[in-house]
Simulated assay, not measured.
Amino acid sequence: MTRNLRTLIGWGAVLATATAATVTVGATAGGPPNPPPAGPQARPTAGQGKEPQTGPRATESRRIATSVLGRDFTFTLTALRSPTDPLAASVRLQVFTFKDGAWRESDRALVGETDAWFWFPLTGRHAVCEFSTAGTEPAPVAVSLLITPSTGCSPTENYRIENGRIIPV
């Protein structure tokens, strides 16, 4: 029993010495000591303070591809940044027809789902993997976009344009 007590006391002395050494090294090794808090820190709660009221954010858009087929059709792909998630985006396909001396939008559709794309890969270099159009009737349109650089391109979405209207295939 005495032997066990001496062992425990010995371990206690080793532990106390190690702890003191750690405290001493910690106090002398770093920069200036942390100052004590000056007083209670005020923490804002709901309803206190004035926060700027912001309205709905304007949708940021960027044209990522255009195809002009003579004087019949113009197709555009536009990235639309999500108003709720700054990393998400949607893609809009628009068809313009030339009537009465001006290009007029005849139809628009989303490519994929709303906010299903990532904004930065979609608006960066090499974002459009495939965007093919043809001037035949009905006009076929194929779209494939970059999901992420590591994932690669999306499956091709196919559409046809009949009388200026977009029809998913």
Rank of each mutant, 00 (worst) to 15 (best):
T24M: 12
G26W: 15
T28V: 07
V111W: 01
E60C: 04
R57Q: 06
T45L: 11
R165E: 00
T84I: 04
R71K: 12
E162W: 03
A109I: 01
G152F: 11
V95C: 02
T28A: 13
P44T: 08
T148V: 15
D107L: 02
S154G: 12
G12P: 08
A139M: 03
F96Y: 04
P37W: 04
T148M: 13
I161T: 08
T78Q: 08
R43A: 15
E162Q: 11
A27Y: 12
V128P: 07
A27T: 06
L5F: 06
A65M: 00
L87Y: 09
G135C: 00
I166W: 05
S90A: 08
G31I: 04
G164Q: 02
W119G: 01
I166A: 03
I64D: 04
F131E: 09
A20D: 12
K99L: 05
Q94A: 01
V14E: 05
G10F: 03
L110I: 00
L110F: 10
V68K: 08
A29G: 10
H126Q: 10
S82E: 13
A16S: 11
T114I: 02
T74G: 13
P83K: 14
P83W: 14
G31C: 04
P56L: 11
F96W: 02
G30L: 12
P52Q: 08
